[in-house]
Design a protein around this nucleic acid. Sequence first.
DNA 1: TTGCAGCCTCTACAAGTGTAGAGTAGGATC
DNA 2: GATCCTACTCTACACTTGTAGAGGCTGCAA
Lengths: 133, 133
Amino acid sequence: MARASHKLTEAEWAIMQAVWKLQPCAAPTVQEALAGARKWSYSTVKTIMDRMAAKGLLATEKIRNLVLYRSAVTRRQAQRGEVMRTIKQAFNGALTPMMQFLLEGHDFTEQQLGELEALIHKKRRQSSKRRKR
Amino acid sequence: MARASHKLTEAEWAIMQAVWKLQPCAAPTVQEALAGARKWSYSTVKTIMDRMAAKGLLATEKIRNLVLYRSAVTRRQAQRGEVMRTIKQAFNGALTPMMQFLLEGHDFTEQQLGELEALIHKKRRQSSKRRKR
DNA sequence: TTGCAGCCTCTACAAGTGTAGAGTAGGATC
DNA sequence: GATCCTACTCTACACTTGTAGAGGCTGCAA
């Protein structure tokens, strides 16, 4: 599963999202997919993607004169990197304060709260099981 | 409360943390405070701080030949900016998936789980009250 | 009054990032 | 074969960030 969290820039996130959705895909495909959101020229997209490939964020395969790109990092890995960085930087590495922050600073629907609660219950069962082992 | 979320770089976070703790403070103070963690020369620290002041992240006051710095952004604002960016970029703006991610990907002590649960209960009470209004 | 200690200002530079134009090469079309 | 479309490669440039040296001003100590 290779290297830890490369951190993605904003532009890279945009590209990555497209690649996760469309892969394997060529640069023009990605450019078109993003055309609505970001007015990037083909060159821009291609440049970013090649740099990402150089960094190991994307994998490439050359078929004739076409380059196919695939993600070399899962969405989950990228998310994890991002979240860990935030926790480390903004919350001194402490997870619960960040959770508190999230909970306090936002409104949730009843359903969302229920889901979260269920998750916590599950967590609790898991950890009590672990303790008994 | 002025402008929205300037996003801080890693170096800026380090400086900010020190300033929040020590403010009002001069650049050399900050440099010394960080000396353990980062081997920055005085110039480096001062440069970053001045750039931060230019960006509106720090406020300065000149007394004689001494420049005093204060944060122009609260810790909470900065945290909020960071978290919002993460949610937006990595989770397409959806809060609960991010919470789920956090819950699933980490171990918590019984106490932490209890705290979180309490928070959710509080949340729920608040939101049901809101609904009745 | 001469120095020294502190803090400041200026300037610089390399790497990384966002952005894109100009020109090229291969396959399809007339 | 000439043309055209498409995707590619190369090159460039401005801005931001990390990093820091060189030299300047000021007040206190000797």
